[in-house]
Write a protein that binds this DNA or RNA. Structure first.
Lengths: 213, 213
DNA sequence: ACTGCAATGTATACAGTGTCCACAATGAGC
DNA sequence: GCTCATTGTGGACACTGTATACATTGCAGT
């Protein structure tokens, strides 16, 4: 994943693409240990550069964190898009719409499970409402995860499954449920359960959302 | 809240109740700035004691954090119990049961709103599944927040509102939804919204849970 | 091709953190 | 009243983020 950010002491004074190398290192750190693990000095170490060099590319440790966060959100968006494109292979419009919403939820929950470090980095914030607006936080469609959920909900309206008057704000309740479950399974009371035990709960929750929306 | 942990340099070599003073200081710090703000040295400073003194009472900074977390969970449990007792003043068994579940959700969401620092401290974990089992994390009933939710769900079954076969695992989907919304409103896309704007979303979510359970 | 300058990486330094170790004061139990 | 386990102190270390001054470089314009 990161070819540039490795040990062999470069001979050129300039790094070439330090910003990207730092970002890669940051992502790797986040993957390994979540947001608190992305520490500036370690990133520069992995990039083979002195700590302060980072400040030529990121205003602060937090700025680096935000970039890593955007990258994580982008990865989630890509996963959602993959799952969405599978859903589109379903039958009629109604089925596709239903499958789309499920795809979003499924991708979200799987991402939380398979990439806990990135997931926590993406969502365990502490500040900065702007991060969601970051254009780097998108998939190939140019949409971020939240917007992709909106697409799925739009499809439900389009297909006549969801009454238009219930559309506004629907992403909030849908997102809440799935996000809450992900957190619960990641670091809450569900942590100890095996994937096989969590799966039915996931299904039940998705059903509740689909029905109760 | 903390009478002991203040500046006047004590004259006795021993503090008297340093453990409690540190805990109080820790809670205050969490209240002000969330989990990352509970820093050992600052707690000892507020207790008027040298940093290392803390290690006579807590094995590490994380041990202190866990204690603070338990305290925060306890505060939430107390808030839930207050709301529950109001729900019990409703009419018949069915109404009480329904009101109980809503009381839990309402208390949870309000706690997140009014005590964001403590809320994040309670739930933004990073480890330790045992914290939920901590006997200090309870209200007057001796039950922790999760168990109180269980009580409300039991009442729904008792009242014939929730079919017994749907009872197992119900706390997970209910908790997920409410917790997710709380996080969303605290540090997600809903952060910017006023309390008046969030309220209807809360109501809608609680309705969805009640109906879709 | 040479020169000057902006961009980028380095050196040094400081305050703040968690934590280890050796030492000092204290108060409870014989 | 002496002993000794408890509790608080002092000093140190490795680590963090970050500021400020300096070195090296590649590119722009002559």
């Amino acid at each position: 994943m990161d070819a540039v950010s490795q040990l062999p002491p470069r001979r050129s004074y300039h790094h070439g693409d330090l910003r990207q190398a730092l970002l890669n290192a940051g992502v790797a750190l986040a993957q390994e240990g979540g947001p608190e693990a992305v520490v500036l000095r370690e990133a520069t170490r992995r990039a083979g550069v002195v700590p302060n060099a980072a400040y030529r590319h990121f205003a602060s440790r937090d700025a680096l964190l935000q970039a890593v966060r955007a990258s994580a959100l982008s990865a989630l968006a890509l996963a959602m898009e993959r799952e969405l494109s599978r859903a589109e292979r379903a039958g009629g419009q109604v089925d596709v719409a239903r499958a789309s919403l499920r795809a979003i939820g499924t991708a979200y929950l799987r991402f939380a499970r398979t990439q806990p470090g990135l997931f926590r980095t993406a969502f365990t914030v502490a500040a900065d409402p702007e991060s969601a607006l970051n254009p780097d936080a998108t998939g190939r469609s140019g949409l971020n995860p939240f917007q992709l959920l909106g697409v799925a909900l739009d499809r439900l309206v389009q297909a006549g499954v969801l009454p238009p008057e219930r559309r506004p704000g629907a992403e909030y309740v849908a997102w809440s449920s799935v996000h809450g479950l992900a957190m619960l399974a990641l670091e809450g009371p569900l942590r100890r359960l095996s994937r096989g035990q969590v799966r039915p709960i996931e299904q039940r929750l998705l059903a509740m959302v689909e029905q109760g929306l």
